[in-house]
Design a protein around this nucleic acid. Sequence first.
RNA 1: GGACGGGUGGGUGAGUGGCUAAAACCAGCAGACUGUAAAUCUGCCGCUCCUUGCGGGCUACGAAGGUUCGAAUCCUUCCCCGUCCA
Length: 336
Amino acid sequence: GTAATVKGQTQQDLENLNAQIILANTYHLYLRPGHELIRTMGGLHKFMSWPRPILTDSGGFQVFSLSDLRKVNDAGVTFRSHIDGSEHFLSPEKALEIEIALGSDIVMVLDECIEAPADYARTKESAARTLDWARRSRDYFARSGDAARQMVFGIIQGGAYVDLRRANTDSLMDLDFPGYAIGGLAVGEAHSVTCEMTETVTSRLPKEKPRYLMGVGKPEQILNYVGLGIDMMDCVLPTRSARHGCLYTSEGRLLIRNSQYARDPRPIDEHCCCAVCRRYSRAYLRHLYSTGEFLATILNTHHNLYFYLDMMGKIREAIRFGKLETFRSDLQARLH
RNA sequence: GGACGGGUGGGUGAGUGGCUAAAACCAGCAGACUGUAAAUCUGCCGCUCCUUGCGGGCUACGAAGGUUCGAAUCCUUCCCCGUCCA
């Protein structure tokens, strides 16, 4: 829900899907419509009519993905807006100020997410900066925030280097955040490396606090991350892929535009109970997609979100019954 | 009957002697997408052969002839389409 909307779904849809929490983005909402406007409108929950929890990302990822529009130094990040080219400065304190104005439930600190692969010296320097920013964020929130209403999560960086990940995890834990995020992964490195770094971190983190792996992932990868002790994830994949005609099923991905579905009367996934699968055929959905109808986006997004949320529900259930390993290997085998 | 303008690959439409199997866009086919600058991006898109190479052969810019080393491009005739005049 980057721009205070999950593209293609109404808040009502999201409630029907049983979405527990959505993510919104500091950088985007700061540029448009502006955090002061949202504060004036009663905060982000009220503004977008979403009574359930919201997590706000800090703009750290934009530092990375808008790389040719930014300059980073220890003080913070100077961005040029991707919308009108205007220049803006984001510091750890400024990011918190915005997120406090938005009133999100979980506030992410500003971090620096760097490209993969990055060399050791650069990664070390950047991770140290992120750690320093986390300290500043914590201190700023202690002065200006309301711990009864919001909680701030720290972010661990350290690239693909085990010792840097370890050191940054330990140092961040010293700052005693209520939750910890792992950033800077799934940015181009091999999945095995993502897993190795994740395990390096989760094996050190306290069990009673949430662990959030930022920006992932594919369904079959999520099963691995959960197995490594991850509690939270966020990802554009289900919604963006939906807009691009890629649908997730219990048997793997399905590209709805493929000509083989032109006359296919079956639902996307015969085992799926979502509103789209209960009502529409592949042939119809392919037609909507290829004619560029926006109902295609709406229905495809609904299905993919149902798939993801349903899978997460089943994962929780499997964990509850001590069956995660079986569930994971069964599902991964079917997804391939 | 006459005067102009025009007929290009599935579509729209560039190209007015060699760099053109022919721009671009659309359609079609396939792929990608991971803390959302994304209803986006990439590849293929005449037929065919193989030793898959910035390879070979064939066919192609309304039709048929011609000029030229070389023609979608120039010339002739014909056939269509549009506009205007009688």
